[in-house]
Design a protein around this nucleic acid. Sequence first.
DNA 1: CGATTTCATGTAATCCATTACATTGCACTG
DNA 2: CAGTGCAATGTAATGGATTACATGAAATCG
Lengths: 358, 358
Amino acid sequence: MSADGSKRKRQGAKGVHANAAAQPTRVRTVKEIAAIAKVSVATVSRALQRPEIVSEATRLRIHEVVKRLGYTPNALARNLRTARTRLIIALLPDIANPFFSEVIRGIEQVAHENGYSVLLGETQSSLVREQAYADMVAARQADGIITMSPRVPAIPIDGRLPVINACEYVKDSDISSVYIDNVTAAGAAVDYLVTLGHRDIAFIAGPPSSPICVDREQGYRLALQRAKLPANPLLTTIGDFSIEAGERAIELLLSQGHCFSAVFCSNDEMAIGAMRALISHGLRVPEDISVVGFDDIRFARYTSPSLTTVAQPKNALGREAMTMMLELLNDPQVPPRKRVLSADLVVRGSTAPRATGR
Amino acid sequence: MSADGSKRKRQGAKGVHANAAAQPTRVRTVKEIAAIAKVSVATVSRALQRPEIVSEATRLRIHEVVKRLGYTPNALARNLRTARTRLIIALLPDIANPFFSEVIRGIEQVAHENGYSVLLGETQSSLVREQAYADMVAARQADGIITMSPRVPAIPIDGRLPVINACEYVKDSDISSVYIDNVTAAGAAVDYLVTLGHRDIAFIAGPPSSPICVDREQGYRLALQRAKLPANPLLTTIGDFSIEAGERAIELLLSQGHCFSAVFCSNDEMAIGAMRALISHGLRVPEDISVVGFDDIRFARYTSPSLTTVAQPKNALGREAMTMMLELLNDPQVPPRKRVLSADLVVRGSTAPRATGR
DNA sequence: CGATTTCATGTAATCCATTACATTGCACTG
DNA sequence: CAGTGCAATGTAATGGATTACATGAAATCG
């Protein structure tokens, strides 16, 4: 009665219409496969999970049935039993931000090499949305989270949180992170502007809530110190990483009548906005003003002029993040660590020696 | 013995180290919550799922325990039992492509309004990867797939496939789709170039494997016919939607010595590449050559000159796709349909009247 | 040849939450 | 006051796979 009842229920749910006559109902459970292949469910499961421990004849028979009936094991049942999903969620603030796409690619490479899948969650920097994805880990729908924001979502589970921080990092947190040495990288960019003869270098900072932005600002300040240039606080403005923020920052600096011959921006998008605003004010880049970005997004090469920027090792950041995640999942005891990669300045067309006279 | 055994196993798996002394093991199952709140598991489940059918006193007591112990129900068990995950996967060929990000946003809006979550899968147009995500639906890890490629993955399940096609569509398929009227939209772009006086209009087509690209090309050809202009097949080249493809297309056209005063590109990235190539050959955009793109990605506004392009209703495409998905999930019988939205030409700085003499 | 492994397979417990059905107690009706 | 209905809660079946343990047969050993 039970088998009968459940079968009837399933048909009802699926709806018996048009194709019911032509297409026989597909088999769906190990039980059914087992019955048809004339073995027990255990053997079916083994034939699929660890084929080597099943005799060849049985294995072939089972695989034939599985294939013929198009059987896919129910991953929910499997994951429930085994308590792992081999799925990790990568959280990114904004998928439109081209910076992340190559990081993701690095994550996915390592994930696939190790039998994991990656799904992406876009958070738009919303705490609520971050939390919603984090809850999926608490609810055992995913094994871990790689987050690319400077916040660590709370997951109410025991022991080490299966969370890795990529590109960003959280100070004083025992969450493992991979990121670049933002102080040095920003410093290198400003050093370069100094070697071009610039002395009044404006800075468009990112949101100070993010430690990496603080670091970039520090790199900027340290470079000025190294060059024995006065740090003019009026030449520093803050933006939110958007193109529009770059435009607004330039508008502000120009409207205040400050004098500068170069701008260092905390990311490429603000640099693109900055260039645009400068050009629309009749200033030439790089003849009048040099512009340097940060990240080296794909479009940086295609702006006019093309953008001089700090290239983050995006693929390596992703690969390393996923590698750390695997370490953590395989052994929750590994101590948390912060891995710091280095970044290189890529010189393109948006920088030039300071025009004499300006 | 069973309860004991399982508890020991869990501790063992989690590892009893440093924090074990300080932090009591957190409770994890309905059973434990039920025991502490002195009710049955059924009542706990009801208090969480349908609070209104539980007496206020009991409800408050259970919620207090749940909150205090940080209990999150195991979604695998729940989904296994209820046979739905309220999760849908959106597949996009390339997250770096800014076109999709706003579509995704539309999808997510509608999803959240209806209690669904969205996870993204990047396929890089690889059939294998598309299939891997599709298998997650077959394995019941997700309820459906919204795909933004012109291919429909095979899912070995009965009846209607929970698949919706967005932005692209597949001819003769009974998969529901939302997309724009590419013939008309492309036609409008070319019509506009014609009104500006252009007669030799080059076309950079997209991959002909995609029906929407075929449609855009048809729109181009029909517009030329309407204008009684001869269609010069040598002015049409094919690209793969990348910036580089746009550059190469222009290189090719210029090297062949063809004469044209405008280029219509099948997407914005190729248009950006085209502009770049034109400029690097000393041609001015739009004074010498007008360029029109397609999609209206975010950067289109920020190129110099800013790009005239066909704006797809990206948010609406996403919202409509998810709406169709919900319809399908709620009633697998709804007939498949193709919903066609319209797109508008956005005139910016990359187009100008044909220069006399060219 | 009897004893001991080893291999292949089967039986049944298990993962955890949901929910159909059963039960209890109380209010209300005629 | 017996009977009916409803509200609140409990018991136990259920979803579908994995896997510990059990079993039987064949292979190996002394």
